[in-house]
Every structure is written in C-alpha cells, then in structure tokens.
Design a protein around this nucleic acid. Structure first.
Length: 275
DNA sequence: CAAGTTACCTGACGGC
DNA sequence: TGCCGTCAGGTAACTT
C-alpha cells in the first residue's frame, strides 16, 4: 500500500505504539525480500534498543533506535501492523519485532518487493547523506519548488507523468497520485516534461501537494484502529477522479476517461479537460 | 546521459 | 473446476 500518503498514515498510526518501547526479540521467515535481511546481525544490533521516534523519507519509514536506524520499505504489497503476541501469524508475515509490552510489530508482504534494513549511521543527517543520497526532495519541502521542478525538466523529453513519478526528481508521487495530480492540473500525462511552462509547474506543484494532503487526511481517519492493522482502511474507499475510471464519465465534463500505458503503467486522463 | 525494458514476487480476476 | 494470460499502488539494474 505504498504511496506517500499511505506511508505517512502508517507512520502516524505506528508512532504511539512504538515510541519509547524496546525491542525484545526478532523473528524472520527466511524468505528473500528486496534486500537481504540478516536475522542474527539484526538481533545483535537491535535487541535491547529503545525506539525514540518514527520518521518518513519518501516511501521509506525510518524507525529511530538508541544507536541504529531501521529502514522499512513496503514495496507494492507490504504492510506494518501492531499485533498481540498471541494472535495468529497472517500468511506472508516475514519479520516480527517483539516489543517490551508483549505486543509485536509485524512486517507482512505477499509480493516481497518490500525490505527491512538496519543502518548504524551516527545521525539522521548521515543517513540522509548515504542511504537516501539519491532521492529527490520531499514534495512538501521548500526545496521542491515549482522553479526547481521547471529547472529539472529542461531537456526532459519524456512524459510528464513519468517525470513526476521519478524519485530522483521528487519523492512520494506514485502512479495513483501522478494521475490524480495531472487531472487536477488539467495537464495531459503524455506531454513532455520540458513542455510545461513555469506557470503550469506552479499549478501542478500545487495539485501534487493538495492531492497528497487530501489522501493523508482520508487515511487519517483509520489511525485509531491500528492494532491488528491489515493495512487497509478508509483511504482505499476514497473515490479517485481518474485513477481506475477508464470509460467512466469525467466528473468535470462527462467525456469518457481514457486509459493508456505510459512507461508501462496504466494512466488515466480526460482528453477534453487535460491539454 | 536519457529513456525504454526487464526483473523481482504472489494473488486476484476474467476468459475459455 | 481449473488453466492461462494479464494486471497490480515500486525500485533499480540493465540495455539501447
């Protein structure tokens, strides 16, 4: 469940359950994930450590411990939830962190595109300069301005949709929100990135931020139910304006929404509203 | 260097 | 019922 809004909702939901807890034990299914997980080393590094806070960088969740960082990516199908230690283990549970209140944080991921990694960087800043050094700015940050995006798009002849989904340019815009943001900005997803004027970038920047904030707000209502979280919540019932609405009438003009492949991914747009 | 393709995995779904 | 192809919200290594 992995675009920025969902990750942010997970972060907010996990925080009260994890803050000031210690890790007492770790279990691993042994199944291969996107990156190798060394259970013995992880136990050595993390057991006995206290969790101080949870932050997010792009689609990565960062669990700050006394002297290490646990970096989790949910891939395409990953979830993190808090469970009673006696509750049955769901299918595709891969990593379990036993906490000092006898609850567990469980990483569940059917497709196993997700990952859990431990880093021993001396600070968040050091982590940023190493592990996350290739990521673009956060969409809500000052650095991710319309002027920055406009400048980065000079010479980029590829589709604007691919451009805003590229995490080297900015993080956190996946397929759903790329489609939704471009619809709100009335920009055709197939336009080349370099064809956008600064004015259009000002609009698109605004709709990206609005769309992400809107989705976080939708997901926020499910935070109270975080125990035994399956990863599904109110957010999934959110009604998208174009995503998944091929052939349905555009909510603005009534023309049927088109579906095309851009960069191998399904893309939805209104050819009448988006120019 | 930019842009397109492939690979990593499982599960859900539609057609036959 | 079951078999097959297609598709799914991400990322990065590879090729062109």
């Amino acid at each position: 469940m992995p675009e920025l809004p969902e990750i942010e909702v997970v972060r907010r939901g996990l925080t009260p359950h994890l803050e000031n807890r210690s890790i007492e034990n770790i279990w691993y299914s042994g199944k291969k994930l996107r990156h190798p997980f060394d259970i013995n080393l992880s136990k050595k590094q993390l057991v006995g450590q206290k969790i101080t806070k949870i932050t997010r960088r792009g689609r990565y969740l960062i669990v700050h411990l006394t002297s290490h960082f646990l970096v989790v990516h949910l891939g395409m199908s990953g979830t993190l939830g808090i469970f009673d230690k006696n509750s049955p283990k769901a299918r595709h549970t891969h990593i379990i962190f036993l906490l000092d209140n006898q609850m567990e944080m469980r990483f569940i991921d059917p497709r196993r595109f997700g990952s859990v990694q431990v880093f021993s960087a001396p600070s968040s800043a050091a982590l940023e300069q190493t592990v996350f050094c290739r990521l673009g700015p956060e969409p809500f940050s000052r650095a991710c301005s319309p002027e920055y995006l406009h400048r980065m798009a000079v010479n980029k002849s590829g589709a604007i949709k691919n451009f805003i989904m590229d995490n080297h340019i900015l993080v956190g815009v996946g397929n759903i929100y790329a489609n939704e943001s471009l619809f709100r900005a009335q920009i055709n997803p197939q336009r080349s990135a370099k064809s956008l004027t600064l004015k259009e970038w000002q609009t698109l920047h605004k709709t990206i931020v609005e769309t992400l904030n809107w989705a976080i707000k939708c997901g926020g209502s499910t935070i109270s139910d975080f125990i035994n979280a399956s990863g599904e919540g109110g957010y999934f019932q959110a009604n998208f304006r174009v995503y998944g609405r091929a052939d349905s009438p555009c909510l603005e003009c009534g023309q049927p929404i088109k579906k095309v492949k851009i960069g191998g991914r399904s893309s939805f747009y209104c050819s009448s509203c988006q120019k």
